[in-house]
Computed example of a mutant assay.
Amino acid sequence: MTEMFLSSSELVVLTGRKIKAKQIEALRRMGIAFFVNAAGRPVVARLVVEGGKQVPVRQAWQPRVLAT
């Protein structure tokens, strides 16, 4: 059975970064859906990368006053 989430080493290969803040930055630039766990590490579902079901990427919250 395959794991549900990418391993730490797979995240390093995917992002090209070892530091978790840099991994998060790279995932955002690539448009890959992820969440940050309690340890501050990015978590990516394997289905997102392997081309399975599409997961929508949430946009950052912005107050209506600043919306154009």
Results as ranks from 00 to 15, higher is better:
23 Q>N: 07
45 A>W: 03
28 R>P: 01
63 P>Y: 04
20 K>E: 08
8 S>Y: 10
54 Q>G: 05
26 A>C: 02
10 E>N: 08
5 F>V: 15
24 I>K: 06
68 T>V: 12
13 V>A: 06
30 M>T: 03
10 E>A: 12
30 M>W: 01
54 Q>I: 12
65 V>Q: 11
45 A>P: 02
40 G>N: 11
45 A>R: 10
10 E>Y: 06
26 A>T: 00
60 A>M: 11
29 R>H: 06
61 W>M: 10
6 L>A: 01
39 A>I: 05
18 K>V: 05
29 R>I: 04
54 Q>M: 11
1 M>G: 15
43 V>N: 12
57 V>F: 05
25 E>P: 01
34 F>H: 14
5 F>W: 13
12 V>T: 12
6 L>W: 01
17 R>V: 01
6 L>G: 00
41 R>Q: 13
53 K>L: 14
39 A>Q: 14
51 G>M: 09
40 G>C: 09
14 L>V: 03
12 V>F: 03
20 K>D: 11
52 G>M: 04
40 G>A: 11
44 V>K: 01
35 F>H: 15
56 P>E: 13
22 K>C: 03
67 A>M: 11
3 E>Q: 14
1 M>R: 14
5 F>P: 00
12 V>Y: 01
37 N>H: 12
15 T>D: 01
10 E>V: 07
49 V>D: 02
42 P>C: 07
7 S>L: 11
51 G>N: 10
14 L>Q: 02
61 W>D: 08
60 A>I: 11
63 P>E: 05
8 S>H: 13
65 V>F: 10
44 V>C: 03
62 Q>W: 02
37 N>A: 12
55 V>F: 13
30 M>P: 00
1 M>W: 10
7 S>Q: 13
37 N>M: 10
64 R>K: 12
7 S>V: 04
60 A>W: 06
59 Q>Y: 02
4 M>E: 15
64 R>H: 08
27 L>G: 02
52 G>T: 04
44 V>I: 07
68 T>A: 13
4 M>R: 15
43 V>I: 15
